[in-house]
Nucleic acid binder design. Structure first.
Length: 214
DNA sequence: GACCAGATGTACT
DNA sequence: GTACATCTGGTCT
């Protein structure tokens, strides 16, 4: 069913092309699992984490999405832009969340990144935040942004561009049977849409966010 | 596991 | 002006 993405043949990882994102959002959400988000800090430090949990937000048809009913504001403008760009916003006045925009221009859909498995560059972070196993500082959408130092300054960046301070590399592919599917978190206001199976995680991965899948 | 306060930008009246 | 949010960490049971 799902399109297979070829695994990288070498350690020299490829960046996922913009085309990867300009597709059906649920397909992107499932296939982005196992891929590697890379953050280059202003001081040149490279951080990377493997994506292990995401949610899909389906634009104007989705009561859980910021763009439900075609709502368009300065905050969510990035969702109306081209595929493969970040959409970063502040939630509850204190946490940032990062999405990757999918679909064609003016189709405001996105994939929310909810949890990462740390892969590169977190030694310093681990020293200051404690080293539990598994680590607890990337297993939630707000913590993920804090861990990668992503704020609204990183809104609308192209993740298919290696010169961007935030981009996504190909890494491993997760097979369909290893993907856990569940309801989305934190959209109690969204009516029936709260039941939609749009949350995807790498089954059994210890770095998933604390909220359990059904 | 359930419950709750916290802090403030954003949207809408 | 006012209500509320794609959350987190702490407390209590």
């Amino acid at each position: 069913m799902a399109t297979k993405i070829n695994q990288s043949m070498s350690s020299n990882r490829l960046i996922l092309p913009q085309d990867f994102y300009a597709r059906e959002t649920t397909a992107v959400a499932q296939e982005i699992l196992g891929k590697r988000i890379v953050r280059i800090l202003p001081n040149g430090t490279r951080l990377a984490g493997r994506i292990v949990e995401v949610e899909a937000y389906l634009g104007i048809e989705d009561p859980g999405a910021h763009t439900y009913g075609g709502r368009r504001t300065p905050r969510n403008e990035a969702m109306y832009g081209d595929a493969g760009h970040t959409y970063v916003y502040l939630i509850y006045g204190l946490h940032h969340c990062v999405n990757v925009v999918t679909q064609l221009r003016d189709v405001p859909e996105a994939v929310l990144l909810r949890a990462l498995e740390p892969v590169e560059g977190f030694a310093e972070f681990e020293r200051t935040h404690g080293h539990t196993h598994p680590p607890k500082w990337l297993n939630g959408p707000g913590k993920l942004c804090a861990g990668l130092n992503i704020t609204r300054a990183e809104n609308a960046l192209p993740v298919f561009d290696p010169k961007s301070p935030v981009f996504i590399e190909d890494d491993i592919s997760i097979s369909q049977e290893d993907i856990a599917i569940g309801r989305r978190v934190g959209i109690d206001y969204a009516g029936d849409a709260i039941e939609w199976p749009l949350r995807f995680g790498v089954r059994g991965n210890p770095n998933l966010s604390p909220t359990k899948f059904d």
